[in-house]
Amino acid sequence: MTTTAPRPTRTVLSPPPAARPARSPRRIAFSHTLSRWDFKLSPYLYISPFFILFAIVGLFPLVYTAWVSVHEWNLIGGQGDFVGFENFAFVLAQPQFWIALRNTFSIFLISAVPQVIAALLIAAVLDRNLRGKTFWRMGVLLPYVVAPVAVALIFSNMFGDQYGLINNMLGRLGLDPIGWHSEILPSHLAIATMVNFRWTGYTALILLAAMQAIPRDYYEAAMIDGAGIVRQFFSITIPQLRPTLIFVIVTSTIGGLQIFDEPRMYDQFGQGGASGQWMTITIYLYNLGWGQLNFGRAAAVAWLLFLIIVIVGLINLAITRSIASNDSPEKVLARAQRRAARKELAR
């Protein structure tokens, strides 16, 4: 309680307490906060073009499609009455929607699974010391340069039912011709072939880039420990590729579920076959929106497809995480060390 004496002088000498803290910090703070803003906000500013563009070309269409899907909407007549979830109910009640869903998943599985496996193997081979490295690496990317429509035109010709190259060759071998355009599974195989032709090299190059970033010490250590090539591949390469594998699998899922060019160019009508043998969801969407000019229903299909992709993407992510994290190289090395230690003890 000794502070009683100086208090009155302070109150007399100093300006009103309300004004003082406000004035002097302001002078310091302007340049100060400016630099603090610069530090904190500039990064956001630099990446903002992406988000602004995304809002215009990504988010807005997404929201607008949702708006269209709850209305009656004609391609030309435009907006009609609000119908709630009627468009969704209609689409879900159509056997065609479920056929399209079946085809989409079937083509996706037939194309994506062998594609990632083949790309992994190709990348592993390219990762070794080959003669003419660049030649081989560019070679696998070559099909990617060809436009998908051109690929589809060539392949659909090769897969012709009566005069196609492939059925001709089967005939030479004494086999029965296959109904590439009339049966369900053969048509899926043919379309998956086009997809794989175009995308395997691209996927392989991405995986190759990731493989080259794996520290060579791991392999040396494993080699000294006596691990063969196969063991190295499964215990070092694959776990180290985890983030890249997740990326490749997620993008190929999105691409696979949205597949459009190849099935559309597969026959002359582009509607997925007379009984919808290879009608994918995007083709169904196109038939509704541009064939029947019914945008409301097409928008409902678009949203359903979006939800399906999100769900499948999450499932994929979960599976890839659990597969890849079991065998991290640290654990492998630790295990190798333990084994070595045991051998040492036994001696």
Partner: peptide, 13 residues
């Protein structure tokens, strides 16, 4: 001839 009109097979036919 079982050729779908405008198909590749049809043009070949």
């Amino acid at each position: 001839a079982h050729l779908g009109q405008w198909s590749d097979d049809w043009f070949a036919g």
